[in-house]
């Protein structure tokens, strides 16, 4: 049967690495993100947050910085992977994979760089 080429996304050898980042991000986010959103997004704004000095000490601790950077990088790549397929499959745009995928993973890369900047250069 004649077909006008593959309708879906084309694969690159980088795919398994992207999937590993996606999976790591899914796991890290599953364990860490709900409690952080609950505290900083809902409880602290309503009931008052921790004193500034304590929060600064916790945030500036080297282990916290490394952990937050790891969470940020993995979570951003987790988003990039899911968002890429959600757009390609959910809106029938698989043909545009070569445009959509670089945009998604590129955004994750930029976000990771921004996270590194905030955590290690401003703090």
């Amino acid at each position: 049967m004649a077909r006008e080429g593959r309708a879906g996304p084309r694969r690159r050898p980088v795919e398994p690495f992207l999937w590993l980042l996606f999976s790591g991000g899914g796991m890290a986010a599953a364990v860490l993100v709900p409690v952080l959103v609950l505290l900083f997004g809902v409880v602290f704004p309503l009931a008052g947050g921790p004193p500034y000095d304590h929060l600064r000490a916790v945030a500036a601790h080297p282990l916290t910085r490394v952990a937050l950077l790891g969470l940020a990088v993995l979570a951003f790549f987790h988003w990039a992977h899911r968002f890429r397929f959600a757009v390609e499959h959910g809106l029938g745009l698989g043909r545009l994979d070569r445009l959509i995928a670089p945009l998604c993973y590129g955004a994750a890369l930029a976000g990771s760089a921004a996270a590194a900047h905030v955590l290690f250069l401003t703090l």
């Binding site: 986010a29 993100v33 940020a72 987790h78 988003w79 899911r82 397929f85 959600a86 996270a115 703090l123």
Partner: peptide
């Protein structure tokens, strides 16, 4: 399934929000 995939947008947002908080903490009281 789609809601599950879309949850990743909020995962990313939560991390952005945390980083904004860290930036504010770094900038002073």
């Amino acid at each position: 399934f789609m809601i599950r995939e879309f949850s990743s947008v909020f995962v990313a947002w939560s991390v952005v929000y945390l980083l904004l908080l860290v930036r504010a903490v770094a900038a002073g009281p």
